[in-house]
Structures are given as structure tokens and as C-alpha cells.
Amino acid sequence: QDLTLTLGHAVFESHPLHDAAVRFAREVDERSDGSIKIDIFPARQMGDVKELMEGVQLGTVDMTVNSSSALATLTPAVDAFQLPYVMRGYAEFAKMAVSPEAEAIMDALGDHGMIGLGLYEGGQRHFLSTGDTVTSMEGFKGLKTRVAPTKLFLAVWNAVGVNPTPMAYGEIYSGLETGAIDAVEINLTSIESEGLYEAAHNVTLTGHYFWPGIMLINKDLFEGLTEEQQTILRESARASVEPQVMAVADYDEELKDTLAAKGVTITEASDDFKAQLEEAWAPVVKSYADSDPLIAAFVEKAQSLQD
């Protein structure tokens, strides 16, 4: 074997982004006839999201597959991937993930010493609450809702009238259980894997945005590889995107039944409700598209797919 790359990530092995790493590693193994090995360190063994991102920048971690929201602090255009209702379904996400518009945004990470090889998916986000199921805009009013405190998420959640409350990921369970928060916007996978269904029972399937992960490699390292190796890595990443994303879609369907069996009420957001949400979020999407041509191009392409 000519080359071993360490890939660290911050999620448990049941998480879709671990699946992304595994699929990528398998593709690389096949395409390189075993001459390139991807050594995966799951579950924060090499550090959390921020450390892994810095590790790839500094060259202490070769690769990671990391939540895109963390990268928005470096390259604001990355926010394009999480604008609400710009992409509606997993199939559309899979198409957009390999679009030239998405690649242009990932290329911008090159300024920070990283190369984005591929855009994967960690699970579409929905709304989990401890009180009544939220079925209308009124239901959001004043709910203490855990969100990651980025500018984008604060704008998105302020726009619908909740009280966005920053809280560490590990504190969500006890926050819901004790009532320190009333709700959380989250993916079905985490509701299951973190046992959140014990503390909160009502899910509204809002599907407001996705939770993408970007496969990153240190830039100097990548540029030092042979052209053939570079091609193998790029093609392996690209080839593993669609199957990974669609596997998450299937897994979500499975989870709806699993969670329902555990006593969770799962309610589809009505078309009317979704229309109201889209209307509330339109100004947010517009202001982000206006702020960056890369975002504008991505939004335009995504919307053209919807029509």
C-alpha cells in the first residue's frame, strides 16, 4: 500500500456521515486496487467538529467529513447549503451536491488550506417539541428552541417567532427533559441515537433544511499526491455522494416507524404551513443570495430544479 490517509470525524458509527466515510473509503480501495487506504477514526477520537476542521487546515488530520455549518465561519458561501426550503427533497440534494455551483463553493475553501472533495448529507432537519405538536406559525411563538448559534440559524428561527436558545449538543437531552428548552430543530437520526424521544414526543416534519457534511482533505497534502491519486480521491468522493444521500432518505423512512413505535407522534407539516414557512423565510434566503454571488448561483440552480 502506497498511501494511508487518516480520516477523523465527530459522529457515532450509526450516523449517516460515518456511512459517507465508509462508502468513500470503499470506493477509494476499489479504484486504487488497495494502494490507497483510508483509516477512519470515528466518534470524536481525533477531536470535535472545530478541531477536525482545524486539524485538516494545520495538517495534523489528513481528512475529515464535517458539518458544513462549521465551515461557514471560514467561507460564508457555505451557508448556501443550509438555506431553508432551497432544496426540498433528498433526490434534489443529491443532484445539487455534485452540481458545478456546489463545487464552486467548496473550491472557495482552498483559501483556507482545505480541499472539499464531496458534499454528503447528515439528515434533513425537523422540529421536535415537548409541548403540543407545532402545526402552524402560532405554535412556534416563544418556544425556547435549541439552535446552533450561527448567524444563519438565528435569522432563520427568529423569522418564525421562536426563542432561539444556544445550547451544547450534549446538553439537549437534559435540556428537554428538565424544560430548560421546549424544542429542538434536529434530524430523525439524532432523535433516535441520542434517545431524545424519551424527553420529547412530538415531531413536525418540517424538513426545513439539510445538514450537509463536507469531505475535506488538507490542501498541501492533496497537491503533493500524484495526478492519478488525486483523480481517484475526487472520483471516489463524487461516486459515493448519491448512494450515501439516498441511503439517508431510506433510513429516515425506517426511522419514522421506529420512532412511532417508541411513542413519538410524527406529523407531516401541511402544505399551507409549509407555504407560510417559505414566505417567512424568503427574505432570509434573499438577503443571503444578495450577499454572495456563489450563494445566488446555487439558489438559482436549486430553484430551477424545483420548477
Binding site: G47, E51, E54, G55, L58, G59, T60
Partner: peptide, 9 residues
């Protein structure tokens, strides 16, 4: 370089 980075983290 991971020493200061990890100390911070």
C-alpha cells in the same frame, strides 16, 4: 502545532 490547538480545544 496540534499542541496549542488541542490545548485550546
Amino acid at each position: 502545532v496540534a499542541i496549542p490547538q488541542r490545548m485550546f480545544a
